[in-house]
Design a protein around this nucleic acid. Sequence first.
DNA 1: CAGTAGTTTCAGAATTTACTGAAACTACAT
DNA 2: ATGTAGTTTCAGTAAATTCTGAAACTACTG
Lengths: 176, 176
Amino acid sequence: MKQENQAAAALREAGDEFVSQWGVIGNAWGINRTMAQIHALLITAPAALSTDEIMEELKISRGNAHSNLRDLVSWGLVRSVVRKGERKEFFEAEKDVWKMFCIIIRERRRRELRPALAVLKECSARTKDLRGADAAAFNKQLKSLSDFLQLADRMITKVSQSEQSKMVPWALKFLK
Amino acid sequence: MKQENQAAAALREAGDEFVSQWGVIGNAWGINRTMAQIHALLITAPAALSTDEIMEELKISRGNAHSNLRDLVSWGLVRSVVRKGERKEFFEAEKDVWKMFCIIIRERRRRELRPALAVLKECSARTKDLRGADAAAFNKQLKSLSDFLQLADRMITKVSQSEQSKMVPWALKFLK
DNA sequence: CAGTAGTTTCAGAATTTACTGAAACTACAT
DNA sequence: ATGTAGTTTCAGTAAATTCTGAAACTACTG
């Protein structure tokens, strides 16, 4: 009994450390600290958690928990589940790392890559027919960027539709 | 003469639009707006620019221009050049898109991926020898994440050391 | 050496982003 | 219908980030 308690305490401590540090990491990745912490908490939790449990664990307000959970759900990284007989909502994260990765790159393509491509196309179109060496150079530079991002877009599409069981062995072969 | 002026004006306008919009895009990517704008300006500028020219073009203070240029230089995306006979410093960006990409992924590996791996290893080590199903599940989850990020790390190393002339045709083949 | 051109730093101001807590709302239960 | 458990919204506040402008500093010039 004593040992079990010690083990449980050590686990809780390691979990807290992970959640807290993952917030710092998320911050460096340009992600809201709280959102990263909630995500860390949910991917390592043994079961789905309620809003109140998350508030308690991270010592944050209901509003903060709610809006970050909403964002995580909108990313597709977290889903809400209902336990039978319970009125509360519970949240669980997608735990499969490959699926997480696919979700993230697909969303980033949609939210970040596509708008960037739109800007490049727009500015490129406006200078396509201008004369002069400077205009040609400007246009060429935008073209290079645009071609590259378009290739990245297609790669993301392809990779995020592949199975982990195909991609990982393939990557390992590539690395050899 | 009239036409030349019109063309020059149209080019300047398109450039301004690109710089301004790239700031917005950069912001969505988690990059400081001004830094993204300076980078956009430099990769499309026909020649290296001085701090004063950048301040004038973007309507920003000297301090702001200076610190963002310093960051861009620290990323390796911009270098300073000295024109003979001139006392001022001028700045020029790496314009080759493939090189830009390699610089960015290498720096992100260093600044974002490596610290994340360190956190995972740390928390993993702390729970390695704990007994109980929950501890085992926690440890397994961290292991999956860690393995995945380690694979990503190796892929970045490999890709960023490759020639564009090898990688692009290879990517196109992969997409088929 | 004094003067000038240019760079760097940094305290405080402005702006943006994140968070709280309470009120309004929803949906189920009695 | 009234009560209750739970969710959502949002005005106001707190915190973090970004920016300014001026002073301090550096290095060249005559």
